[in-house]
Amino acid sequence: MIFYFSGTGNSRWAAELLGQCLDERIVSISETVGTSTNFTLKKDEVVGFVFPVHGWRVPRIVDEFMRTLELLDTNSQSKARHYTFCLLTAGDSIGRTMERFVKLIREVKSGATLDLNAVESVLMPESYVGLPGMDVDKPEKEHKKIEDAENAIVRFASTVKERKIRQGDVPLGWEQLKRGPIPDFFSGPVGAFFTHFLITDKPFRVESERCVQCGICAKVCPVGDIDGGKGKEPKWKNNGKCLTCFSCYHHCPHHAIEYGNRTKHKGQYFFGKRNG
């Protein structure tokens, strides 16, 4: 079973590719919001997690999901450990995101304590456009990132399929994670700044003359933060749920959504956009 969260489609694609390679079912974390987070595992079924890095940290929706997740076994008396892995997607570096995730996974309720056996991080096309100087990748770079990521994910799937065990105290792939320079600083003070000041829907606005009220933005929001739909101009609910994943911005077919003045003249990206 592979649990995933995705805003602009990068992590969904990665989870689907892993699911195909491993013949495993995938579960969207955003679709579990407001429902039961108890899942029953089959005998010898792997447990995987795939999600993007938000501000060099675990996305809030994933954090909240992990705190309520309960994994049961078909055989309620079984204490067998399930092979567990995690794959992160990022536009650049991941900082100490995986270290933060390790703390969450240890608290998951299950028949046997979960320990990560293998980890991986792959670079995917950039989608964060909320700060000056940050924009989507050029087509050539976008294509190269996806090509390299596909190769890395297929290799990682082989590791999982063969149930290769962790080496010593750290999971397979731990030392090769793309943490970037000064990861403690980025996941610490910089990540805290992102969490408290930049993860908000308040700057989002609509250019009414470009909006055709198609409802796409409301449909793609992973947390239902947009009051909209076909025939309605979108309004953000300001209810604290926004992840600032920019899915609404990137999927708008007429570029009618802006994030204050920070997204003017910037590009749009979601997985498959250039082939759509």
Results as ranks from 00 to 15, higher is better:
residue 270 F to R: 00
residue 198 L to D: 03
residue 40 T to P: 05
residue 260 G to W: 12
residue 206 V to N: 01
residue 223 V to P: 04
residue 133 G to A: 09
residue 176 Q to L: 01
residue 136 V to G: 09
residue 177 L to Y: 10
residue 264 K to D: 06
residue 98 M to A: 09
residue 140 E to I: 09
residue 148 D to T: 11
residue 74 T to Q: 14
residue 26 I to K: 06
residue 168 G to R: 11
residue 48 G to L: 11
residue 165 I to N: 08
residue 200 T to F: 07
residue 57 R to M: 12
residue 166 R to S: 12
residue 124 M to R: 08
residue 100 R to L: 15
residue 155 R to I: 03
residue 110 S to R: 10
residue 149 A to P: 01
residue 214 C to N: 01
residue 189 P to T: 11
residue 230 K to T: 05
residue 18 L to W: 12
residue 93 S to L: 00
residue 89 T to I: 04
residue 233 E to D: 03
residue 183 P to M: 06
residue 204 F to K: 03
residue 224 G to T: 00
residue 75 N to W: 06
residue 6 S to T: 05
residue 156 F to C: 04
residue 80 A to R: 08
residue 153 I to V: 13
residue 185 F to C: 00
residue 72 L to T: 07
residue 237 K to E: 05
residue 181 P to M: 03
residue 275 N to P: 00
residue 39 F to R: 07
residue 255 H to V: 00
residue 276 G to Y: 08
residue 137 D to E: 14
residue 133 G to T: 08
residue 62 V to Q: 03
residue 126 E to Y: 09
residue 130 G to V: 13
residue 67 R to W: 07
residue 187 S to H: 05
residue 206 V to T: 15
residue 37 T to R: 14
residue 52 P to V: 07
residue 256 A to L: 06
residue 48 G to Q: 12
residue 214 C to L: 03
residue 3 F to D: 04
residue 9 G to L: 01
residue 47 V to S: 05
residue 198 L to K: 11
residue 7 G to Q: 04
residue 117 N to T: 04
residue 61 I to V: 15
residue 247 S to Y: 02
residue 148 D to G: 06
residue 77 Q to S: 12
residue 24 E to D: 15
residue 81 R to H: 10
residue 186 F to P: 01
residue 16 E to T: 06
residue 6 S to N: 07
residue 20 Q to I: 01
residue 37 T to D: 04
residue 192 A to T: 15
residue 162 E to Q: 13
residue 108 V to D: 13
residue 137 D to V: 10
residue 105 I to A: 09
residue 86 C to M: 12
residue 139 P to K: 13
residue 254 H to W: 13
residue 27 V to C: 14
